[in-house]
Amino acid sequence: MQELLQSLAPWLSDNAIFTPATLAQYWGGFVNTVQLVFISLVIGLFLAVPLSIGRASPIWIVRKSIWLYTWIFRGTPLLIQLYIAYYGLAFIPGVQDSAIWPLIKDPLYPALLAFLLNTAAYTTEIFYGAIKATPRGELEAARAYGMSPMLAYRRIILPSALRRALPAYGNEVIFMLHASAIASVVTIADLTGVAYNIYSRYYAPFSAFIFVALCYMVLSFSIQGIFRLLEKRMLAHLQPR
């Protein structure tokens, strides 16, 4: 990073906005955005796998309660969920004296909570759709081999369902990255928040926002590249020869 800044120095001296100080702010915002999105996606993914199995469960109460959860989180805007997690939780009576207050006090954790519950809800529905779409023949073959439902999930249903869900999940990851742009409303200095600070300090909307748009594009294209590689590998059996 230091070397990069050195080599940019002559060009930087010509303008008022992209100084090493503001570039360092953008870098901090970049780190915050990546961290926020990555952690919520990883936890959301681990939550979504069991939830999607439960969503397809024959037990009524399990199926319906998970449906209710995804219905609520997919039916309301993420911005509202973020407001409730940040401002709402702080006003629960007694919470400010409780052991979890240090977590709620820091804007990072309420934002993480809202983001990961939101992405988990969408991912659950994506995986559930893929599980439902498992060819009937595969299920019958598994039963004919005498596999228990557990074993059939582990060996047959999940490997093929998660593979089929890959393109849709790649979309969800990119949506999540772009949705994270609202984190600055709860004082987190993410990429968009930093762009706002710089815009409002120098009144230069084009420079501040086009630069941040490019940062998001770099991230999006990297994610797309990773998913393309994954799809090539995991979905090789579906590729036209």
């Binding site: 401002y87 702080a90 006003f91 400010q96 006090k105 804007p107 409303v185 004082t187 200095a189 928040g193 600070n197």
Partner: peptide, 15 residues
């Protein structure tokens, strides 16, 4: 901590 409005500042003073 930077807020969009003074009302948000007031709410977080309260919390």
């Amino acid at each position: 901590q930077r807020y969009a409005s003074a009302d948000d500042v007031a709410v977080d003073m309260e919390t």
